[in-house]
């Protein structure tokens, strides 16, 4: 009897410590109220001008809004890994939309020009923006602040019909600063603390927030519960 009560006490103490430590996870950063309309939710109220896959967000049954940094290692692992499954299993077959919202997290020097270049390409040739993002994530560890312009120019020249110099000029001029700042403000309002962070919506209303590199199962669950 004594053994049982002591074991229970220890389990309780350990659980208390763990629960206390984890309390913040339960009580903060929920990402807004479940059921909040897409057009009003902080993560999804300003989606214009950002790379989008699939249907238009307002028309899609399922929407994923992703806050990502083109220089972040976790985003690189997601983008080169389970993102491909999400694309082929959710975005392409279903009435679904995936929106990439820029959010500088790492503080690496080429994050800002890379985001502006991506947004400029989005304005000129939307599908090419995803090719450029693929290029950045496949070369996250080799691109530097010094090599960014040459690497981007070489990629755009070889793989697109876009005017690479015009895109780089837009990046230098920070031509899409308002979109970037709005995205980061919205991310903070929605409780983004790291990248990647995903907000899932079904039928125009917010369902769930997912943090970190997740696989297809987590996204499927996120649309179910």
């Amino acid at each position: 009897m004594r053994r049982r009560s002591v074991l229970a006490g220890i389990a309780g103490a350990a659980s208390l410590g763990t629960a206390t430590s984890l309390a913040g996870c339960l009580s903060s950063g929920s990402g807004g109220s479940s059921g909040q309309p897409l057009a009003e939710h902080p993560a999804s109220r300003n989606l214009d001008g950002q790379p989008t896959l699939g249907d238009a967000p307002m028309d899609a049954e399922k929407v994923i809004v992703a806050f990502e940094d083109p220089t972040c290692s976790n985003c690189e692992r997601f983008h080169t890994g389970s993102f491909q499954d999400v694309k082929s299993e959710i975005i392409e077959p279903d009435s679904a939309s995936y929106v990439y919202r820029p959010y500088r997290f790492t503080g690496r020097g080429w994050a800002t020009p890379a985001i502006h270049a991506t947004l400029e390409v989005t304005a000129r040739d939307p599908p090419a923006a995803w090719d450029l993002l693929d290029f950045y994530y496949e070369n996250t560890y080799s691109i530097t602040g010094g090599s960014f312009a040459d690497d981007t120019r070489a990629f755009l020249t070889e793989n697109t019909d876009l005017d690479a110099d015009a895109v780089l000029t837009a990046a230098d001029d920070r031509a899409h600063q308002s979109i970037l700042e709005t995205s980061e403000t919205d991310g903070e309002a929605a409780g983004v603390n790291s990248t990647p962070t995903f907000f899932l919506y079904t039928d125009g209303t917010f369902k769930n927030k997912l943090v970190g590199v997740q696989d297809l199962t987590a996204f499927e669950a996120g649309f179910e519960v």
Binding site: I10, A13, A14, L16, G17, T18, T20, S21, L22, G24, C25, S28
Partner: peptide
């Protein structure tokens, strides 16, 4: 006991 409760120290402090 403190140590046992510290299982989530890392992510807890982080959060």
């Amino acid at each position: 006991t403190l140590g046992a409760g510290c299982a989530a120290c890392g992510p807890g402090i982080l959060a």
